[in-house]
Computed example of a mutant assay.
Amino acid sequence: MKKMRRSMSGRVSGFLRDWSLPRQLAGESVMAEAAKSAASRALRPRLEEADKVGTSICPFCAVGCAQLVYAKNGKPIHIEGDPRSPVNQGTLCPKGAGTLGVLLSPERINHVLHRAPYSDRWEQKPLDWAMERIAQLTKQARDETFAETLPDGRVINQTLGLGSLGGATLDNEENYLIKKLFGGGLGMVNIENQARI
């Protein structure tokens, strides 16, 4: 019992010695060592562990906030706003601040899933296969629905069998290229952007 009391007494006195409040009340400067504890002295910024820092753009809207991505052994460990950016000046909204959580979430799907027609299950497929399939189905739909002229002979070169719905994260340059490729190249008439809806 005495041993337990001594142990408890030692822990309490150790806590009181380490606790910054009594030192500050005794008159030590708050800005100096008085504000630190053994635990806080041992803390190190997690960014010290990073062996590489890269830049990125937040994927959640069209504002285009710049981000700094800190990585260790090729894996991201922290994402924060880039203070050099004139757009966000180092700040991020709650969605942008949550980029790392979305990136590392175990729920994130990072491979191609395909469900064949009339199938009741999804299959994992290689990305090259998926890109080739998208290209083939796009060409097939365009070829089957492409109209060169109207009944009165006017040239229209268009298809109503395809459409594009862009996202709010697309910037002006990307939207320009989409309009040129899909409208001028493929003849799509139905080109819309989710940001207008």
Rank of each mutant, 00 (worst) to 15 (best):
K36V: 02
H114S: 07
E28L: 14
I134E: 00
E48D: 13
L103R: 05
S37P: 00
P86N: 10
Q67M: 15
W122N: 03
T138G: 09
W129Q: 07
G81F: 04
P45R: 09
P117E: 14
C61P: 06
R46E: 09
D82L: 07
G74I: 06
W129F: 14
D120Y: 04
A39K: 11
V87S: 06
P106Y: 03
N157P: 02
K95C: 06
K139A: 15
L150K: 14
Q136V: 14
L43C: 08
H78I: 00
T159Q: 01
D143Y: 00
L127E: 14
K95Q: 15
V63A: 11
D128L: 13
P86C: 10
G96F: 04
L104Y: 02
K72M: 05
A66I: 00
L103W: 15
R44T: 12
G153I: 11
A38H: 05
D128T: 14
A141N: 06
V53S: 06
K75R: 12
I79C: 09
P117L: 13
K139G: 09
Q140N: 11
D120C: 08
W129N: 03
K125H: 12
I77V: 15
D143E: 15
D51A: 07
I57E: 04
A32M: 09
C93L: 07
R154G: 05
S56C: 06
P151G: 11
A34R: 04
N88L: 11
L47F: 01
G64A: 01
L103F: 09
D51C: 07
G98K: 04
A147V: 13
S37Y: 03
G90I: 08
E123S: 13
G81I: 10
G54Y: 01
L100D: 10
I79A: 10
G74W: 02
N88M: 08
L103S: 12
E49V: 11
Q89Y: 02
N88P: 08
T145Y: 02
K36Y: 11
E33M: 08
P45L: 08
A62I: 00
A141D: 03
D82G: 11
L47H: 03
S119P: 01
A97H: 07
T55Y: 00
W129G: 06
